[in-house]
Design a protein around this nucleic acid. Structure first.
Lengths: 95, 95
DNA sequence: CTATATTTGCCCTTTATAGGACAAGTCAAT
DNA sequence: ATTGACTTGTCCTATAAAGGGCAAATATAG
C-alpha cells in the first residue's frame, strides 16, 4: 500500500532508488525495503519523502497509516468486521 | 472498544475482576487495565477470557483487532481515509 | 465510617521492533 | 560477460512495548 505508492511516485519523477537514498542518507537496500513494505517507514522519512516527491505529507499519510493498519491485521479473517467496528467507533467519537 | 466489551461481559455474568483475575492468574489491577484499554490484551489472555465468558474467540476477535487498529491510528486526522483505503485493499486481495 | 471493588501510577524485566549497514543475489540491457 | 538497478538475507544496536507486580488513591455500598 505505502510501498507501491512510493515506488510509483519515484518512477513518475524518473528518479533512481540511489538518488532517493542519497536524499534520505540511507543505503539503497533500505529504500527498496520501504517500497516493498519490508520495513516500516518512519515519520521523519515520510516527511523527507514528501519533500523529495514534492507533495504535502498529508497526501501520503493515509497510505502510511493504512500500511500500519494492514500490518496489525496480518491477514486475520475478521479484519473487515474489525475495520467496520473501528469506523463506527471513530464516527461516534467525532459525534 | 475491546475493554468496554470485556467489562460488559464480565458484568453480565455477575463476576468481579478479582474472580476473572484468578482465572487468568494475574492481579486485579491488570484486569482493570485491560477493561480500560490501558494495556493490550495478549492473544492467550483473549482465549482465556473467551473461555471465562463462555463464547467463541471469534466473537471477541473483531474487538481485539479493532482495538489494535485504534491504537495505531492514535487519533490521526486521516484515519478514516486510511481505513477506507485498507478496506478497498483487502477486498482487492480477496478478489 | 469502613469494607470491598476498581482505578491509577510507578516500577521492573524481558521480548520485540525499528532502523540501518553490508554482502550477495537476481534481472535486464548492452 | 559486465554493468547498473534493484532485491533479499543476515546481522547488529538501540529503543520501545509487552507483561505484570505492588502500593496508593478513588469510588461506592452499606
Amino acid at each position: 500500500m505505502l510501498g507501491e505508492k512510493l515506488k510509483e511516485l519515484r518512477e513518475s519523477k524518473g528518479l533512481l532508488q540511489r538518488q532517493v537514498a542519497a536524499e534520505l542518507d540511507v543505503d539503497t537496500a533500505y529504500i527498496s525495503k520501504m517500497e516493498n513494505n519490508d520495513k516500516p517507514v518512519s515519520k521523519s522519512h515520510l516527511e523527507a519523502l514528501a519533500k523529495v516527491y514534492d507533495l504535502p505529507e498529508s497526501e501520503l499519510m493515509p497510505y502510511w497509516l493504512g500500511e500500519k493498519v494492514l500490518h496489525v491485521l496480518e491477514n486475520n479473517e475478521h479484519s473487515i468486521q474489525a475495520l467496520n467496528l473501528v469506523l463506527k467507533n471513530i464516527r461516534n467519537v467525532n459525534e
